[in-house]
């Protein structure tokens, strides 16, 4: 089953790398949407159905956590699983992360295998 994903990161370069890593690692990728910050991501979600969101934490404009708080108000998308991909250790965000739909964490830098592993785990748990 192919999964539609949304990649949210203010770095266009990093979005490209994440997309490429997901593909290279053999994850079953359907459509792949991109957004440069939280606000743009919420706009994409209004018109596109996604199965998984990969988001950065620290972004200009609306950051990752603000986006997730807004997403919780969206009946259609509040249950979409989220993986946080960030340069920082996740200790700062774990306490409130679960309540906001974060199902997995990945710290940059990462290998493609690591991203595939975490995405597969998250989607498997979500199916169950």
């Amino acid at each position: 089953m192919a999964y539609n994903i949304l990649i949210v990161d203010d770095s266009q370069t990093m979005r490209r790398v994440i997309r490429k890593s997901v593909t290279l690692a053999g994850f079953d990728l359907g459509e792949c949407w991109e957004a440069g910050d939280g606000r743009e991501a919420l706009t994409v979600l209004k018109t596109h159905a996604v199965d998984l969101i990969l988001t950065d934490f620290n972004m200009p404009g609306m950051d990752g956590m603000e986006m997730l708080k807004e997403l919780q108000k969206d009946e259609k998308n509040r249950h979409v699983p989220v993986v946080l991909i960030t340069a920082q250790d996740n200790a700062r965000v774990v306490p409130e992360g679960s309540a906001l739909g974060i199902k997995g964490y990945l710290q940059k830098p990462f290998q493609p295998e690591a991203i595939c592993k975490i995405l597969s785990q998250v989607m498997e748990k979500n199916r169950v």
Binding site: A87, Q88, D89, A91, Q107, P109
Partner: peptide
């Protein structure tokens, strides 16, 4: 620089 900073301060 973001990756270096994030990893270092973590």
């Amino acid at each position: 620089t973001n990756m270096i900073s994030g990893n270092l301060f973590s």
